[in-house]
Design a protein around this nucleic acid. Structure first.
Lengths: 131, 131
DNA sequence: ACACCAGTTTACGTTAACGTCAAGTCCTTT
DNA sequence: AAAGGACTTGACGTTAACGTAAACTGGTGT
């Protein structure tokens, strides 16, 4: 057995700059599954939950909903893949990859457009301040 | 004067596969400003509003909130830029461009990770079905 | 023993982004 | 004139993702 650095809910919350309530909500939604110390006293969080939480928060930053995030992080979690067929999981993964690619394309386009406006704008500003 | 193809709210809604209520809500939030036919009878939508609506819906697909979208489309709208200084607008625009770039990076990383899992997964599946 | 603190459950409150329904207006068609 | 259809303005309902507060429990220092 390796020494596992298990932390409490408020420690984890502090580490990620969120509240304990948020962490409990993610558990309630099935996104986290902390271990419980000696028959239901406290929640303890290890490396696995910390990794999952990172994924969740990144997903949030990128504008995904919690249910979308849940699908993504459960997609290739072999423990949870039982039940629905492997083939379906693979097909589903390909669909999500396709969607991600489209999002990247759209974001890139948006950035290019904003950059274009930005340059026109700064150029206009230069001309105005020159005279 | 050029012939302007002005359409009603339900026509516009049908065109973009949304509801009239959604369009009115965007107006209420200050994202759209349709012309009103002969003293407050009906809303009519031209090319400008259609373009704005496109921007709004793309922003939504990318996970931005309506207030974020509002800031972005008003950012380089010269009519609305009056009041706040040009310099501030430019600085703000650069900040948003930076954020967009970070989002693209994160999305690209997420896609790479998912692709990695995906390949491991399909390889595992191949081995299972071979024997 | 008592206070205190960190954690727990339960439950009600809040905001964004609409959905849904009621009631009234305006124009056209029969 | 009456009916029908599209639009209008309220106004209340709904869901996701938490915030917040109350009341309870369980270990710890004094």
């Amino acid at each position: 057995m390796v020494e596992q650095p298990l932390v409490s809910i408020s420690n984890l919350a502090e580490e990620f700059l969120i509240t304990p309530r948020t962490i409990r909500y993610y558990e309630e939604m099935g996104l986290l599954t902390p271990v419980h110390h000696e028959k239901m006293s406290q929640r303890l969080y290890g490396a696995r939950e910390r990794a999952r939480l990172k994924l969740i928060l990144r997903g949030k930053r990128l504008g995904f909903s919690l249910s979308e995030i849940k699908e993504m992080i459960n997609l290739y979690d072999i423990d949870r893949t039982e039940g629905l067929q492997l083939e379906r999981a693979v097909a589903y993964g390909e669909k999500r990859l396709q969607e991600l690619e489209e999002k990247i394309q759209e974001l890139t386009l948006l950035k290019a457009e904003l950059l274009d406006y930005h340059q026109q704008f700064t150029e206009l500003m230069k001309k105005c301040t020159e005279e």
